[in-house]
Simulated assay, not measured.
Amino acid sequence: MFDFRPDDTLAPEELHRQLCEAADALTASEPDGIANMANIAALLWEFLPDLNWAGFYRVAPAMSGDEELVLGPFVGRPACIRIPFGQGVCGAAAGSGRIQRVEDVHAFPGHIACDAASRSELVVPVIRDGRVIAVIDLDSPSPARFSETDARGIERLAALLAARI
């Protein structure tokens, strides 16, 4: 049994390096993408302090026939199930293929409030073969919780996971 809890005194860069190492160890030999997303959601929860939600939204067919984001494995309160591309922070990340780091979600145009306690959000697209296949979504009850170091660290995690989810 592994204990994937990091040392509370780690510098942010080292914390993200160890997060990616732990994610690699958990997912390297597992072919099931849902299982891998579930373990990574739990790992994010363990590694990153001051979160109230950590998980995935997957790109899937919409009921209208287009694509949209559909809730995947996560840790936190119940969440919105379907998010159209371009709507909210997650939809903006999926639609643009770019990281969304939002210091105050209440100031974000079209923010979708799944949990009223969320104040800041980091959403990182998972891109495979040039196409967004999922997003990693992190919410915090603290304003401006996520740094550029967090964004780059989760971007490296997303790149690692692209072929494993």
Rank of each mutant, 00 (worst) to 15 (best):
A113K: 10
R101Y: 01
F108C: 08
L161R: 00
V70T: 01
S142Q: 06
P31S: 15
P78N: 06
V132Q: 03
R152W: 03
Q18R: 15
A163D: 10
P84W: 10
P125A: 05
G86W: 07
G55W: 07
A134R: 06
R98E: 14
I40S: 13
A113S: 12
M1E: 15
P73H: 07
P31D: 15
R145E: 13
P31R: 03
D24F: 13
D137T: 02
I154N: 01
A38G: 10
D66P: 01
I40T: 15
E155A: 11
F74P: 01
D137A: 09
L44M: 11
F85G: 01
I127M: 07
A116V: 13
P31N: 14
P12H: 11
T9R: 05
A11R: 14
D32E: 15
V102N: 03
V126Q: 05
N36R: 15
G110V: 13
C20P: 04
R5E: 01
A144M: 02
P12T: 01
D150E: 02
L51S: 10
L26K: 04
A151L: 02
A93K: 00
A134K: 04
G88V: 08
W53D: 13
Q87L: 11
P141A: 03
P125K: 04
A94T: 00
V126N: 03
I112A: 11
A38T: 09
E30T: 12
G76H: 07
P6Q: 03
M1Y: 09
G72H: 06
S96A: 10
A28F: 02
G86T: 04
D150C: 00
I81T: 07
S96F: 08
A94P: 14
R17K: 04
P143K: 02
L69T: 01
P61D: 15
I165H: 09
R82W: 04
V126F: 08
G86Q: 07
T149C: 00
I154T: 00
L10I: 10
P61G: 13
Q18L: 15
V102I: 12
G97M: 11
R164P: 09
D24R: 10
E21Q: 07
D115L: 07
P31C: 09
F4D: 00
F85H: 04
R5F: 05
I83L: 04
G76K: 03
G33H: 05
G97R: 13
R77W: 09
V102F: 09
Y57I: 09
E121M: 01
A38Q: 04
D150G: 02
A113Y: 09
A144E: 02
A107S: 15
A151N: 02
D8R: 13
D129S: 01
R164D: 13
D129I: 09
P109L: 04
R82I: 05
